[in-house]
Computed example of a mutant assay.
Amino acid sequence: MEGLTAAHSRIAEIQNRILTFASASSTSTSAATSSAWSSAAAAAGLTGTSATAATAAPGSSDLESQVVAAASKYLGVPYAWGGTDPSVGLDCSGLVQRVFADLGIDLPRTSSQQATAGTPVASLDEARPGDLVLFDNSSSRPGIDHVGIYVGDGKMIAAPQAGEKVKIQDVGDPALIRRVLPPTAAAASALPATGTGAGPAGVPYADLFTAAGARHGVDPALLAAVAKVESGFDSSAVSSAGATGLMQFMPATARGLGVDPSDPASSIDGAARYLRQLTDRFGSTDLALAAYNAGPGAVARAGGIPPYAETQSYVRKVTSAAEAYS
């Protein structure tokens, strides 16, 4: 443990020198920073994934870069369930809470509580360094149970599980993304444009979402969120189950609604009509989304959102994206 503490102290010392140099010279590059960090880690005796510090993506704000640097200090710390002390070990949410506390930002203790902090981010494509990426990894007990800190380029810093150490790893497919940093000029410029009540401006097919929403009494932002989660706004998408088009209609459902799934206008109008029908039947947006994903019969049998991990995650993702587009 003394060796690990000394290593982190050495890396922290060089980190401060790098940050000072970066603030004094706009010509510093992320490659040079990464090289310096790697050299420091090697000199400290750390190797492998835990020895390589993350560097924030080009264009990151100062505060975003500070989060990445603060998280990098804990690379190599052992995982410990319930851990909040890096000299002993950290669990995933303990790491997140500690990193932001180092920057004077208070976050709740557990990953499920952290999932309610800040504001939603619609997708990983729109994530910024410093955002929280949250996961539902349990099929038996649906709910957020893991969290990491996004560092850019599809990577995060996280405390994975027992027997591992804090490390940089691929993000994969998070259930939620939350932005807890205050807005900055750099971060604000990367956010999708939003409308002022007229519709989800700044997304593909925004005018079609607005028109269909107005016709059928469905929030255009919700329609855009369904398209984002279902197909990534790809009108030619085909799923392994045979769902097609922008809004991913199964053939039987499309026929019943008189929808041409390959035509974005028809697909969006059909989805708005279908969501209106489902909302009227089940009485809530969440249940309508669950029925859109798992089928009305599954919702009726369950008497609520079915206990399927995929459906639980789907409802959260669409709801979060809709909030971001509103």
Rank of each mutant, 00 (worst) to 15 (best):
G48C: 06
P182Y: 04
V88F: 12
S72C: 02
P264K: 05
L287T: 10
E310P: 07
A190K: 15
S93P: 07
A225R: 05
A302D: 02
S139N: 14
T20P: 11
S326G: 15
T319C: 10
S267N: 08
V147G: 04
D260K: 00
P204V: 04
A206W: 05
A31F: 13
A211N: 09
G245V: 06
S326R: 15
A175F: 11
F135H: 09
A227E: 04
S235Y: 08
I11F: 12
G148S: 05
A70S: 09
T5E: 15
S231F: 09
P264F: 02
V299F: 00
Q15S: 15
A206Y: 01
I149P: 02
A290G: 07
N16G: 15
D286S: 12
G295C: 00
S267P: 06
A162L: 14
T285Q: 10
G245F: 01
T110Q: 11
V259D: 05
S262A: 14
L246R: 10
G217T: 01
R178C: 01
V171C: 05
S61Y: 00
P264M: 08
S284H: 01
L176A: 09
A32H: 12
H216E: 00
D125H: 12
A42D: 13
A42M: 13
S236R: 12
Q113H: 12
D286F: 00
G232Q: 00
A309D: 14
G256T: 04
R179Y: 11
P78M: 06
A221V: 05
P307H: 08
S267Y: 03
G118R: 01
A227Q: 02
A300C: 10
D153Y: 10
G83T: 01
S139W: 13
D136Y: 02
F100K: 03
P306W: 06
A71I: 03
R301K: 14
K165D: 12
A32P: 08
A101Y: 11
Q312V: 15
V68T: 03
R255V: 08
T194K: 11
S30Y: 04
K167N: 10
A322S: 03
A198L: 11
A252H: 01
A101M: 11
M250F: 06
S9T: 15
A221L: 08
S65T: 09
L63I: 11
P264H: 00
G163D: 10
A185H: 12
P251R: 07
Q15D: 15
S87W: 12
R273W: 03
A211T: 11
Q312T: 14
T52A: 13
S30T: 13
